[in-house]
Design a protein around this nucleic acid. Structure first.
Length: 258
DNA sequence: ATGACGCACTTGGTGCGA
């Protein structure tokens, strides 16, 4: 089974590019982040015409997550237990479902903005709550087939950004964020894609500004974490999809599992 | 070549992104 995750930066603005990529890439399940629309605005029919079932969770122009699958889409969960709020608002940042026997989550971790912004504290709370939920899932079902995929908004190691000096005192590379991410490995999860795409210089996101993409100045912040029951046979980052007019600023990340 | 931000919105300035 082939599973992918992709922050598309608006589902509506990029729907033709997304469905074209899906068919070309022979992907069974795609976890989407930043759909930037309400449920009634999500272009579900375009996915259905391509043979995929659709589950979307979006409330306004911000955030928004979806799962599309051609191997089943059952037991859809909107948010995870204990998902935190920001300024008393529940944001659409997590959707999960059973896709062909694998519980796949599409996750859009809060950005954090700056180290002193309330959004940063929210980001850490959000990650802790996701960890608690994951620990509970794996605690009750140690053999669970689980994939936590999405835009984690964390560069786990220094080599996951092109220049650490540029990110001094920025989010995405701070110790608390990296520790919050590393804790997931304590649960037995592993990075499905990194063994197949060793760095340095391997990224999943490039800023639209300052010629970051052609200069190969990016960040590795989109990750797929999998439970021990999943055997991963390959992984890749589709850098070509970042090329050309109308690209998202993130590239799709793909894994193949048995 | 892979090229100089893009998307959304009670729409034209502002919020957000990383």
């Amino acid at each position: 089974m082939r599973i992918a995750t992709w922050n598309v930066n608006s589902a509506r603005a990029r729907i033709e590019r997304i469905t074209s990529w899906l068919e070309r890439s022979d992907v069974d399940v795609l976890a989407i982040q930043e759909t930037k629309c309400r449920d009634d605005q999500f272009p579900a029919m375009a996915f259905e015409a391509a043979g995929y079932e659709v589950a979307h969770h979006g409330t306004n122009q911000w955030n928004g997550v979806a799962l599309v699958s051609r191997v089943g889409l059952d037991d859809v969960q909107i948010g995870f237990p204990g998902v935190p709020t920001f300024r008393d608002q529940a944001e659409p940042r997590a959707i999960g479902a059973n896709c062909g026997g694998v519980t796949v989550w599409s996750l859009y971790v809060p950005n954090g903005r700056t180290l002193t912004d309330p959004h940063y504290e929210y980001k850490l709370r959000w990650l802790d709550a996701l960890w608690d939920a994951t620990a509970a899932w794996l605690g009750s079902a140690p053999g669970a087939r689980l994939a936590l995929t999405g835009d984690w908004n964390i560069a786990p190691h220094d080599e996951d950004v092109w220049d650490m000096a540029v990110f001094a005192d920025s989010t995405h590379v701070s110790d608390p964020e990296r520790k919050a991410y590393q804790r997931f490995f304590d649960l037995g999860l592993s990075d499905a894609v990194r063994p197949f795409t060793p760095g340095p210089g391997i990224y999943t996101y490039w800023d639209y500004t300052k010629l970051r993409f052609p200069r190969r100045e990016g960040m590795r912040i989109d990750h797929m974490l999998v439970s021990p029951a999943l055997r991963v046979t390959s992984g890749r980052i589709d850098r070509d999809e970042r090329k050309g007019k109308g690209a998202s600023d993130h590239a799709p990340v793909i894994m193949e599992i048995e």
